[in-house]
């Protein structure tokens, strides 16, 4: 197992797997495009409301990748697989990638870059404010994700900055919870997973603190 995890081929494979949702979306878009060219109209591969479908699809994957990023460390420790750490940055960057696509779809395809309406929404609609904050919070993390930045900042400072991801994930889940009309099952599920992942860290800290005190 450690050997497989250490292989560059595995890393390449994970890279491609993470790209699969985007590829799936492009394929559906391609089918729609072909139908359009053939004059069939919308065959409905992206539901009757493609804009909303693409927006929700990319938003969903942003949250999933955020939670996956946060699952790497607990899995690494519980399974005793230190090589898992090699995948954390990539998965985190994918969360940022899907988040950016999500934002661009909303701004461009949905709101058609209507500046005033976009600002009004960001300032007045709580769920959009919260979603924007979540994505903005991920920006410095994406920028400083390289080895060079870890060196420049020093690991302790870098790690402190990157704890911002807990807040981003929480805001992401709140964003989802605020926007659904009445069926809160999925936002609650994401929230529950996030709670488990964060409590793990809390428990580890407490145990460490306890161990220090006992000494």
């Amino acid at each position: 197992m450690p050997k497989i995890l250490a292989s560059k081929w595995t890393k390449a494979a994970v890279f491609l797997v993470c790209l699969a949702p985007a590829g799936y979306l492009l394929a559906l878009g391609g089918l729609e495009y072909r139908a359009q060219v053939q004059g069939i109209g919308q065959p409905g591969n992206l539901t009757g409301d493609p804009i909303k479908y693409i927006t929700h699809f990319t938003g969903d994957w942003t949250l999933r990748f955020l939670l996956l990023t946060l699952a790497v460390t607990p899995l690494r420790k519980l399974l005793n697989q230190p090589q898992l750490a090699r995948y954390r940055r990539m998965i985190g960057l994918y969360a940022f990638f899907y988040g950016c696509v999500h934002l661009m779809i909303w701004m461009g395809l949905d709101k058609e870059f209507a500046g005033a309406e976009l600002w009004k929404d960001i300032l007045e609609r709580w769920y959009i404010t919260v979603g924007m904050a979540s994505l903005l919070g991920m920006l410095p993390l994406a920028v400083t994700s390289t080895a060079g930045w870890i060196r420049r900042m020093g690991f302790v400072k870098w790690q402190r900055l990157h704890r911002l991801v807990y807040g981003c994930a929480a805001l992401g889940v709140i964003h989802y919870y605020l926007l659904v009309k009445s069926d809160i099952r999925l936002p609650l599920l994401y929230g529950a997973i996030l709670a488990v992942l964060l409590s793990y860290r809390f428990a580890v800290r407490r145990r460490k603190a306890g161990a220090v005190a006992a000494r």
């Binding site: 878009g29 729609e32 409301d49 804009i51 058609e112 605020l178």
Partner: peptide, 21 residues
């Protein structure tokens, strides 16, 4: 309270719904 009602997207038109607001 959570979204504007000033405009709407007309479904079933435009590639991927583009330009239907």
């Amino acid at each position: 309270p959570r979204w504007s009602q000033a405009s709407e997207n007309r479904l079933g038109e435009g590639f991927l719904g583009k330009g239907t607001r």
